[in-house]
Amino acid sequence: MRYHRQEILHFVGAAGQDRLKNGRVLVIGAGGLGCPLLLYLAAAGVGTIAIADGDFVDITNLHRQVLFTEDSVGKNKAIEAVRILKERNTEIVLEAISEHLSESTVDMLKSDWNVIVDCTDRLSTRYLIDQQCAGLGLPWVHAAVEGQEIQVAVFGLSLEGELPLRYRDVFPPESGNIPERFSCSIHGVIGTDPGVAALIQARETINILLGRGSALAAKMLILNLETYQQYTISLKANPVQPL
């Protein structure tokens, strides 16, 4: 009964709900993107969710990292996210990884995940996700915020007759200087903006788990949250780019 309102959708049904229950998702980052995304993936009954984050909750995070409470301040984000989500859904498996994804922790990506969700704010981490997911043949759902614009895209999902798209196909790292972070602590952000991006990520993650593919596979959605101007760009895989 718990998932009745989504199960009655013709493209979900009991079989689709079973797919979500059997779904295994690794979320990289429990910040402004990760918090709202996790609330919805857990509520939808995604059966196994792991959360990787080495940061600690700061009081200035609370306006956008809506999973956390004032009592969360000072605690590791992954562990705290799992504690809170376990109270919200006791029927799913939640795992905390209290470390950032890096070259030394990259094995966390190799646990038979169905989807990786990129909720990081570090570009070096994003390139690492890209490299590893390309090697593992895994789809990953990207989102990021800059100013009042969000971008969301799905990489690594095979389309008929096309190579799976990689992030480096669109943004070759050797083509110029890439700033490591567009930090919310320096540039500022309205808390809702990463939330909007995260819910699109959550929807695409659910679509992929349901076996429905993704409308954002090999596409990048850019949405301005002040003007609501939307721009969707088709992306192309680049076979000459090395892994």
């Binding site: 910040g31 990021a144 490591e180 567009f182 990463p194």
Partner: peptide
Amino acid sequence: LLPPFSGG
């Protein structure tokens, strides 16, 4: 012109 966004 589309740069990579990084905030999250």
